[in-house]
Design a protein around this nucleic acid. Structure first.
Lengths: 143, 143
DNA sequence: CTTTGACCTGTGAGTTGCTCACAGGTTTTA
DNA sequence: TAAAACCTGTGAGCAACTCACAGGTCAAAG
């Protein structure tokens, strides 16, 4: 299979296939006649695997590690479980952060409804933002 | 004020100050003696404004527009309100997406508890991922 | 008065996972 | 046989910083 074919078979952009190849996730052979990349069923399996793993939140380096382990006939599953739990925790944290942001935004919107628009006077740029109280932020620090 | 001073006054990394200056959000004068950047109270106001706006979800180009409008003595408030509502909608969408991801991950974890780890056999890389059903994904498309 | 250390300068690269652009070679279609 | 569609590798662009580098400047200590 050529780039476009495997890309279509996996439902991804051909450039993504090229990118994954560059990154070493895919190891196509070469057609000696024209130097085209030649992907086989194994590459397609790896590509589909990679896409599923991405949808589950794995990073490309993580996916590469998993693939490498499998190539060495070691079961990547324990590693998959471990990485996965870490990712889940991260996702939970991201959700919490975004929800906090949403609350900040909503409270700002509520307050703004009663505030008149001001013209910048050299002291103030936009009261809406400048007078928004970020005391609530103190609780949500990043580590 | 020099870079480090204004950075401390606003509670940001000096490199962020330099970056914002490069990006045109800050317009410091120059000390002709040594070519150092010289920030004044107005720059500090802009910097604090920018940080607050960032925490509220505005992008740097958006913040620059707001600042530019204020410099022209137009009230940026209507624009702020408009951009803000769009951002809020985006945040809601991001939260929904992440929550969906979390559900996918949790359901995968649940299923995995009952699955044995497998050794790669040339057909399978990691059953955990390959046998994970992504039918649920069909509903959550991106536009 | 010189050295040391802390600060300043601008610029370029690294982060993540692609996506797009470019210039040139190949194959297919008309 | 020429145009269209594909292939090749490489480099840049996205967001919002952060860090590294090489060299200039300045305050205080010796």
């Amino acid at each position: 299979m050529k780039v476009k074919e495997i890309a279509q078979a996996a439902g991804v952009n051909p450039d993504t296939v090229r990118f994954y190849t560059r990154e070493g996730l895919l190891n196509p052979a070469r057609n000696p006649d024209n130097n085209y990349q030649q992907y086989d069923a194994d590459d397609l399996r790896r590509l589909r695997f990679a896409r599923k793993a991405r949808q589950l939140g794995f990073s490309l380096p993580e996916i590469r590690s998993i693939l490498d382990q499998a190539d060495d006939h070691h079961s990547p599953c324990p590693m998959v479980r471990e990485v996965f739990e870490k990712r889940l925790a991260e996702v939970e944290r991201e959700i919490a952060e975004l929800q906090q942001l949403r609350e900040r935004m909503k409270s700002a919107l509520g307050i703004w409804r009663e505030m008149p628009d001001g013209t910048p006077d050299g002291h103030t740029i936009c009261r809406l933002i400048e007078h928004w109280d970020d005391a609530a932020l103190a609780s949500g620090g990043k580590e």
